[in-house]
Design a protein around this nucleic acid. Sequence first.
DNA 1: CTGGCGATTAACCGTCGATTAACCCGGCGA
DNA 2: TCGCCGGGTTAATCGACGGTTAATCGCCAG
Lengths: 226, 226
Amino acid sequence: MRVLVCEDDELIASGIVAGLTAQGLTVEHVATASAARAMVGVAEFDVMVLDLGLPDEDGLKLLKQLRQQGLETPVLILTARDSVTDRVDGLQAGADDYLLKPFDLRELAARLHTLLRRVAGRSVNLIEHGRLTYDPSSRETTLDGQPVDLSRREQSLLQALLHSRGRVLSSEQLKDSVYGFNDELESNALNVHIHHLRRKLGNGIVETVRGLGYRLGPADGAESSK
Amino acid sequence: MRVLVCEDDELIASGIVAGLTAQGLTVEHVATASAARAMVGVAEFDVMVLDLGLPDEDGLKLLKQLRQQGLETPVLILTARDSVTDRVDGLQAGADDYLLKPFDLRELAARLHTLLRRVAGRSVNLIEHGRLTYDPSSRETTLDGQPVDLSRREQSLLQALLHSRGRVLSSEQLKDSVYGFNDELESNALNVHIHHLRRKLGNGIVETVRGLGYRLGPADGAESSK
DNA sequence: CTGGCGATTAACCGTCGATTAACCCGGCGA
DNA sequence: TCGCCGGGTTAATCGACGGTTAATCGCCAG
């Protein structure tokens, strides 16, 4: 799951990023409204955390604008202000939840999970693909009904592949969904994780498309029948 | 984009129709399974929204039947039920996505857009030639509906041939489109690739015109009867 | 019958992905 | 606090595949 955090206070931001990352989420962080706008333009996020007190523009104004442009991602706003009108304004601007500063990190995590579940939980909560199932909300994977223990990176990899059934994903795209945009990676770490995934889930799961990238294998667990 | 909504509850249906129309979609609404069947028979839709609780027939049964008849339109099902077996049943019946009632209208719109995107990305530039299809965007080739793996060179060769239907292409022209203009090639590598193409796609696909070059065979997979 | 062109096949080579091992770091328990 | 443990990354090496070359075959035409 990808989260966009828009917060200018470096200290708070790093706390949020660390906390959410530990929860297995992939987090992007920006510090200004314009950066957030740019980010939303180029990538899809599952949920957004927005601080109202941004240096360059009022967060509410930004939110309203994004909603007008058709952004449907759930948004949780952070604010130091506390008045009834502020809350109402926030919700009217299109926020889905709000949190007052200072806040407890665990509280934030819990609320985000609620939002994510609201999105995921109302629809197919369980992704099935052949012998595999993956439940994004509980982050549980099973193979032939047996639970499989996947590490954080392996999970995001699998999730990215499941999310775009059958399409080939370049290693660039995979890198973006497993790591953020920021982190540059100049090694074959992805290969290694894919290798681990295959070791745990069997060879039919991930197919290599030479020169292009990887994709999910066919749903009927048939091994390569070349 | 055309959407078929099959939903018997008048209130819900009008909400959906209004919401989707506002998104710029063209919406047709029917209230019964038989009406849906009739509609599908006479018009093409890009995506279908199907309520499982229809008055005259079980939605799942309808869906299964439509799939058996070869309907490939993506289908999102709506249901009040919520259990793992129901979800699995829905997906196995051929649904592409799943939403529980009550649902958020924005959520529905977002999911439909995802489905539409999936379809649009898939078939936009599909080139057909007899038993062959080639999709330049996903670089997928199928023969009689079966996917065929082609290597990079084989693909560009096939693409060049498909691109100038029937015209004879000299080996110079083929060389230019497979390699750049720059690269000089001193061997019969092209011949070898053509050989490989024929091995994978059958002999009728590429015809040799002695002394001139090659061209695509006739669309009706008939072998050259000379 | 023979020359030549294209087909076929096999061998070689380079590149890319797979695999494995080592190292690094953070968390946790002793 | 120290040291172990597990996951993540880096790096080195292996191996398979695709691409090219080249040798040989077979067919058609002159």
